[in-house]
Simulated assay, not measured.
Amino acid sequence: MKKKIYAVIGSPVAHSLSPPMQNAAFQALCVDGEYIAVHVLPEELEDFVADARKRLAGFNITVPHKNAVIPFLDEIDPEAAPAGSINTVTNRNGHLSGTSTDGYGLENALLEAFRYRIAGNTAVFLGCGGAARATAFHFARKGLRKLFLLNRTLSTAEALADEIAAHFPSLEIHTASLADLSAVEDFLNRSTAAIQCTSLGLKTDDPAPIPPELLPAKICFFDTIYKRTHLLKYAEEKGILHADGLGMLLHQGAKSFSIWTGRDAPLEAMRKALQEAHARQH
C-alpha cells in the first residue's frame, strides 16, 4: 500500500509546527503517512488544489487560504460553512471535502488549560479576523451565553456579529472598537475568558492590542500566538490564568488527524513533538 502524503499549505508556512507534530502521530500509531509543509501563494491555490486531488490524502490550510480555498472544494461541512473558514481537507478518491477544526481546537485548549466550558458561559474575542471567525461561530454553536467582539475597525466586529446573529439569534452579542478602552474594560470584566486573536505579538516590537493592565485578575486569558506576548507576560506576572496558542494547535491538529485516519490521535506523542519543535524555534 502506497504511503499517504498530507500537507499544510499557507504563505508563509516555513515556520509551521504542524509537520513534526503530525509525523510524530503517524509514527506513534505505525501509520504509513508523511506530512509536509508547502508554500502556496494566493495565485497558485487553484493549481495546488487540482494537483492535491491526485497526490495528497488530505491537507491543512493556514493564512491566507482558509476562505479562498472553498470554491475549489467539492463539499463543505455544513457546520463550517457559515464561518467561511476551512482548515482541513480530506481527499476521498478525488472528492475533496472541507471542514474546520479550529473551533474544536480552541474549545479543548480552554478546557485543558482552564476547565472552561463554552455552554452557558461568556467570552470576549480581541480581534475579529481569520482566527476569530471560525472559533466565534463554533462558540455560538456550542451554546455560549454572551459573546463580546472587539476589533480595531468597529465595522468588522459589527459585520461578524451580524453574521453570527443570523445563524444564532438567541446569542447575546456586543461589539466595540479596541480603541474604546472603557468598553474594552467593561467587556473584559463581563467575560470568563478572553481570547487574543490579533496578529499583534508575532513580532517582538509589536505593541499589545490592549493595555495589559485592563486584564482582570479573575479572567482566563488565552493568546492564539505561540510566543510570550506582552499580554502573556503581564498575565504571568500578575498570576492571571493564561495559556498560549500551542494547545489550540495541538487539539485542532489532533482532530484533523482523526478525520483523515479514522483513529484516535496519539495526543501525548503529538504534544511532545510540538513542544520540542517549538523549543527549537525559540
Results as ranks from 00 to 15, higher is better:
residue 12 P to L: 14
residue 12 P to S: 00
residue 13 V to Y: 07
residue 13 V to T: 05
residue 13 V to E: 00
residue 13 V to R: 02
residue 13 V to K: 04
residue 14 A to C: 11
residue 16 S to D: 00
residue 16 S to K: 07
residue 16 S to H: 02
residue 17 L to I: 07
residue 17 L to R: 12
residue 17 L to C: 07
residue 18 S to N: 13
residue 18 S to F: 10
residue 18 S to M: 12
residue 19 P to K: 13
residue 19 P to N: 08
residue 19 P to I: 11
residue 20 P to A: 05
residue 20 P to S: 09
residue 20 P to Q: 06
residue 21 M to H: 06
residue 21 M to A: 04
residue 21 M to E: 04
residue 21 M to C: 11
residue 22 Q to W: 11
residue 22 Q to N: 04
residue 23 N to T: 10
residue 23 N to E: 02
residue 23 N to W: 08
residue 24 A to M: 10
residue 24 A to Q: 11
residue 24 A to V: 00
residue 25 A to L: 02
residue 26 F to P: 01
residue 27 Q to W: 12
residue 27 Q to D: 15
residue 28 A to I: 06
residue 29 L to S: 09
residue 29 L to Y: 10
residue 29 L to K: 14
residue 29 L to A: 10
residue 30 C to E: 15
residue 30 C to D: 15
residue 31 V to G: 04
residue 31 V to N: 05
residue 31 V to F: 13
residue 31 V to I: 14
residue 33 G to P: 08
residue 33 G to K: 14
residue 33 G to W: 12
residue 33 G to A: 14
residue 34 E to R: 13
residue 34 E to P: 03
residue 34 E to Q: 12
residue 34 E to H: 14
residue 34 E to K: 09
residue 35 Y to G: 01
residue 35 Y to C: 02
residue 35 Y to W: 06
residue 35 Y to V: 06
residue 36 I to S: 04
residue 37 A to S: 13
residue 37 A to D: 08
residue 37 A to Q: 00
residue 37 A to R: 03
residue 38 V to Y: 05
residue 38 V to W: 08
residue 39 H to D: 15
residue 40 V to K: 02
residue 40 V to F: 01
residue 41 L to W: 13
residue 41 L to S: 14
residue 41 L to A: 14
residue 42 P to M: 15
residue 42 P to H: 01
residue 42 P to K: 10
residue 44 E to N: 10
residue 44 E to D: 15
residue 45 L to I: 09
residue 45 L to Q: 06
residue 46 E to Q: 14
residue 46 E to L: 08
residue 46 E to R: 12
residue 47 D to L: 04
residue 47 D to T: 08
residue 48 F to G: 10
residue 49 V to Q: 02
residue 49 V to R: 12
residue 49 V to M: 07
residue 50 A to P: 03
residue 50 A to N: 14
residue 50 A to D: 15
residue 50 A to M: 13
residue 51 D to M: 11
residue 51 D to V: 04
residue 52 A to C: 07
residue 52 A to W: 00
residue 53 R to A: 05
residue 53 R to E: 02
residue 54 K to P: 00
residue 54 K to Q: 13
residue 55 R to V: 08
residue 55 R to F: 06
residue 55 R to I: 03
residue 55 R to W: 05
residue 56 L to C: 08
residue 58 G to M: 03
residue 58 G to D: 01
residue 58 G to A: 05
residue 59 F to R: 10
residue 60 N to Y: 05
residue 60 N to C: 13
residue 61 I to V: 15
residue 61 I to E: 00
residue 61 I to L: 06
residue 62 T to P: 00
residue 62 T to N: 11
residue 62 T to I: 05
residue 63 V to Y: 14
residue 64 P to L: 02
residue 64 P to W: 05
residue 64 P to M: 01
residue 65 H to C: 03
residue 65 H to Q: 02
residue 65 H to E: 03
residue 66 K to G: 07
residue 66 K to P: 07
residue 67 N to I: 04
residue 67 N to W: 00
residue 67 N to H: 11
residue 67 N to Q: 10
residue 68 A to D: 12
residue 68 A to S: 07
residue 69 V to D: 07
residue 69 V to R: 04
residue 69 V to A: 15
residue 69 V to E: 01
residue 69 V to K: 09
residue 69 V to H: 06
residue 69 V to P: 03
residue 70 I to G: 06
residue 70 I to H: 09
residue 70 I to T: 11
residue 70 I to S: 01
residue 70 I to D: 01
residue 70 I to K: 00
